[in-house]
Computed example of a mutant assay.
Amino acid sequence: MDITTAREKPDDWWEVEALFDTCFAPGRTALSSYRLRDDVPPIANLCLVARDSYGQVAGAIRNWPVRVGGRDAVLLGPVAVHPTHQGEGIAALLIWRCLEVAAKAGHPRILLVGDAPYYGRFGFQRLEGVQMPPPTNPDRVLGIALRKDGWDGVVGPVTRAAD
């Protein structure tokens, strides 16, 4: 696999949006997690693009600032891989890279909405007492501490960082 990753640039925006539209339902922006992103810019150094040897976008990941019970957190996602590259480990590469960059940048915690069996391999675990906007299934609200005790005492509703 000849894949390179780099920080998403403004010129990548349309390609990344097209990838997300390809990989997710057209109504993806109607999901409750998107209300947390409305009018809030993503965390630029945690938005990555993976390109194949032809320079085509093979995958992308974005991350957003949120608040959990009034404390800062990172909301991971969306992450997507083009159908022609699925099964090559690109999503895992992007997730690991985001975890590394976020930890180095001093972010204490990351959460996401996803499948525990998949995200568990990265260290994500179900978060008790953290409430995503409805109708999110609480069993799919997962988090990882990027520093010791990063989630200790952090409970409550997940809100937009701008609120």
Rank of each mutant, 00 (worst) to 15 (best):
D115G: 01
I95A: 07
N45K: 13
L31D: 10
M1E: 12
I144Q: 05
H85T: 08
V66H: 09
G123R: 10
R140H: 09
V101Q: 12
I95C: 00
G123D: 09
L31G: 07
P134Y: 03
S53Y: 11
V79E: 02
M1Q: 10
T84H: 01
P42G: 14
Q56F: 09
V49G: 06
P10A: 15
P157F: 08
V79M: 02
L94A: 05
M132P: 05
D11G: 13
G120Y: 00
A103G: 15
T136L: 04
T159N: 09
P157N: 12
R28V: 09
D115T: 01
V66P: 03
R126W: 08
A162G: 11
A102F: 09
N45Y: 14
W13T: 15
W96P: 04
I90P: 07
V158F: 08
P83G: 04
Q56M: 13
Y54V: 07
G87T: 05
P134S: 02
A103W: 04
G70V: 00
R37A: 12
V101L: 15
A92L: 00
G156L: 07
A102W: 02
H107P: 00
F24A: 01
F20D: 09
R7T: 14
L31E: 11
V57P: 08
N137R: 06
E88F: 09
G143A: 03
E100L: 14
R160Q: 12
L46N: 05
A73H: 03
H107Q: 14
D38C: 10
F124Q: 02
K104T: 15
